[in-house]
Design a protein around this nucleic acid. Structure first.
Lengths: 324, 324
DNA sequence: TTGTAGGCGTTATCAA
DNA sequence: TTGATAACGCCTACAA
């Protein structure tokens, strides 16, 4: 395979000049540049990235560690990839499926300089393990974590969930049921806190209805529709604040199949503003995942290049549609 | 960051000896080895992979290009990763989401020697584009394609589909409806061919019932359940051969919700033997995706190291469960 | 059993 | 505007 010296010889210049042409350095005369470029084109030459990486101490490759590749993680990855590419970085994706080994691989690649930085969407190993690797390169995360060495693009769910609750209140709903996601996560804790503060503020009974936990699938939503239908008419809630759009979608469509009229029989608010909420005209809470991705990239760039570009302020937004 | 020379100096040996220790070469005396290892451990040293790659002309990194990351593609990726890791290779995943650019990136990384090889699960660019890149390193694919430079681990659907049809026949079903997947793909063509040959063999009317095309989701399956329920009793098919387990699952569960009894009212056969089919006790066609992944890896190894290990023979298998 | 030295393919510094 | 040349960090004949 052709290397820079071969190009140099064929173009009758030194390899330094070829390098200048490749990297668009100034102070190359137009005739020389053309002559060199011609040889490059003719031989279909591209610089060997291993050599470039070795010399520069950078691979221009960033790893993304993700637990899976579902809707919102996928959106993040897509957004991040876009920003990264605009800045000349490539992305290598590591789907762990919960396997520690797969995550360690990525971390080791960082240590061994095959990766310049790492985005850890949802971790598998202990934070202490991940923190240990921050000395080899910047690592940012999507999860909520309070470790100085691991910056996060996490968003506090309290504000977002309050938005949903206040909206329901303003619309006249008073009998709200909460369907929370993962019990373990801090997001759920924040949402619970938001609900309690909300009840206190408006003097509502926080325990008037059961709370659901650990639910986020379409099927779970469908079951909740049945749960509602089977209750006494007088004892039915009039609104659901859901953990995800998917769950809300399941609830909504199954309820309609059962002849329930939304939003007059009850209201539904989703979370995430995914495509499905758009499709079903579902009121939801928008979540600037794209801006999160951009922030993650800015953080990495700042760390890598010693810059200090400012991070976007992130805010949830209510998207009012037909289910409330 | 520490490099091999620093280790050498601290251990009082030459860098060559350090290299020998790192790579487990023979002819290093035990005392020396221990002394060197000690310094390596103390300084938390690991060789810089860029330097190793440059020297060896290999990165030990294989790229996988995938359109998305759903169930069966995910299984393939997982299997492939396992085999690759056992042989000291790491994996970089590229999810294209149908974007040509993302695929080209991976191809360019191959060209520029950042990747040793590429597995192209489902391509985005024209085959001619991909073929062009085979001169930079081995590329194997999961799709059916007849290009010498691009080996494939594709499996002929004819045999698998015939398996399903013969099974239904043996069980006494005669009014079979086919639900095919993507119209564009060659898999569907093969399945259609299988069905026609099957009808001919048993003297059945291939056009007795409508054929469904381009369906593979759970929701599509649910709709087909309604389609069946709304037909005249006398004009109902007694079996469905489905494009995927997901579709079959949707059909099965919705049918049961409508009070249909499977397999006495009608039979259902899925395809792929995914977890969901196991869960629902669904008869399906097993598909050795793990062996395909291993084959893909063997092909790459053979190409990379000039070997000639033999490829596994791949065969569909009927998994008889409760829906037929 | 160990060390010396050259080279993998680039880039960047310094002269010219 | 161009060309030598020394790194980048590692591996591997070849010598000792």
């Amino acid at each position: 395979m052709a290397n820079i010296h071969e190009i140099a010889k064929l173009a009758g210049v030194s390899s330094a000049t070829v390098s200048r042409v490749i990297n668009n350095h100034p102070y190359v005369s137009e005739p020389t540049r053309q002559r060199v470029q011609e040889v490059i084109d003719r031989l279909d030459y591209v610089p060997n990235l291993n050599a470039v990486s070795l010399k520069k101490g950078m691979t221009k490759l960033i790893g993304i560690i993700s637990l899976s590749f579902n809707d919102s993680l996928g959106l993040f990855v897509r957004g991040f990839t876009m920003y990264a590419q605009e800045h000349g970085f490539n992305i290598a994706l590591f789907i762990t499926n919960g396997e520690k080994g797969r995550e360690l691989e990525a971390l080791e690649m960082l240590r061994r300089k095959q990766l310049d930085a790492l985005v850890c969407m949802i971790r598998v190993n202990e934070w202490s393990v991940i923190e240990h690797y921050t000395k080899y390169g910047p690592i940012v995360t999507w999860q909520r974590v309070n470790i100085e060495a691991i910056p996060s693009v996490f968003m506090d769910q309290y504000q977002g969930y309050t938005l949903a609750l206040e909206h329901l209140y303003a619309r006249g709903y008073r009998k709200i049921v909460n369907v929370y996601g993962s019990m373990r996560g801090l997001n759920t804790k924040e949402r619970i806190r938001a609900y309690h503060d909300f009840c206190e503020k408006y003097d509502l009974d926080a325990e008037a209805f059961p709370h659901f936990y650990d639910l986020n699938s379409i099927e779970a939503g469908e079951q909740i529709a049945h749960w509602w239908a089977e209750r006494e008419q007088t004892d039915r809630p009039d609104a659901f604040a859901c953990s995800t759009d998917y769950l809300a979608a399941g609830l909504l469509t199954e309820a309609r199949r059962l002849g329930v009229s939304v939003p007059s029989d009850f209201a539904v608010v989703g979370f995430d503003n995914t495509e499905i909420s758009h499709l079903l005209d579902l009121t939801t809470i928008h979540y600037p995942i794209d801006k999160q991705a951009e922030n993650a990239f800015i953080m990495i760039c700042n760390a890598l290049e010693g810059l200090d570009e400012t991070i976007h302020h992130l805010e949830f937004k209510l998207v009012e549609r037909a289910t409330t």
